Computed example of a mutant assay.
Amino acid sequence: MALITLSGYPCSGKSTRASELVAQLSPLLPPQLKLVTVSDESLNISPSVYDDSRSEKPARGALFTAIQRLMAEDTVLIVDAPNYIKGFRYQIYCAAREMKLRVCTVYVVATPDVCRQRNASRTDGRAYTPETLENLMLRFEEPSSMVRWDSPLFTIPWTDQNIPAGDIAQAVTSGSVKPPNSGTLSALKAPSDALHVLEQTSIAMVSAIMDAQVATQGSGGLVTLPLSPSLQVKITLPARNLTLSELQRLKRQFVTVHKKAITLGTTEKGAVDWGEESVANKFVTYLEENMKP
């Protein structure tokens, strides 16, 4: 349904705002929707992972995996985490688009001094070291309403007593749903037996054409090729005898071209159909376009 990404300095009040969102959005959303919050704390990710990049990277990967797992059409997912890197926010945005979810960003603003005071006074064991806190604030990349992955953007200063719950509810229930980015779509793959079907069907076609020429005595025209008890295809042959070597050469060319399409997935606007009938019809088209009169 929707994804709400929180962003802000460490100890800026993101978790407090996330709790307020859950409380205030619940009566504003349709009853069939679930409100779910995922956070570093809920995933048992310690603040100490941000002490160095080697531990931070897998922790961020674990968070992203959890986000993907919790995304659903009946869920409004709140991501309560630092989300201080714009590249990571973009990654979350792309995942949401792929799931056809609405998105918005809540920027929780607090001054560095306020964040330092809150971090120093924490007694829950989730305080950052002073060095890590300063480093994270220095590296923080502020959300911007000018970029699509942060929009719509709701900015909430630490001095505000209330959150714009009504506007956020409207964004997650009636905001625009961006279509998936074509770069994130998985390429459709041909079935595992596609190469076998391609080879055997084209061989059967060559054999059937040779038999048809014997029956028509090389007069050409429209003929029906019986490839199997359940499959017959029509092809227009030239008014001459096609040699076996000529047909085999065309068959090799056809197979070579389509092997590449099978290996890469498809070259035909997302349509992958490598059944016997489809391959036979493709080969008919190829032959009719390449056979000399």
Rank of each mutant, 00 (worst) to 15 (best):
P82N: 13
A2L: 05
K100P: 02
L188E: 12
Q91H: 10
Y84G: 15
Q253I: 01
L6G: 02
T75E: 06
S182Y: 14
I92Q: 15
S176A: 15
Q117L: 13
R69G: 09
L35V: 15
T16S: 14
T132Q: 07
P143Q: 08
T216W: 08
I45H: 00
L21C: 08
Y286P: 00
T16R: 11
P191A: 12
V257W: 01
K292M: 08
S182M: 14
P82A: 08
K34T: 09
C104E: 10
V233A: 01
Q91T: 05
D124W: 09
E277G: 12
A2I: 07
V206R: 04
S48V: 08
A18W: 02
M99V: 03
A81W: 03
D160S: 15
E199A: 14
N241H: 13
V114T: 14
S46D: 13
T75Q: 02
D80M: 07
W158Q: 14
I67P: 03
R116N: 11
S48W: 07
L3K: 08
R122K: 12
C115K: 03
K234Q: 15
E246Y: 02
P293I: 04
I67G: 09
R97W: 02
K57N: 01
M137G: 05
A239W: 00
R252I: 00
R89Y: 08
A66D: 06
A18Y: 00
P30Q: 12
A212V: 10
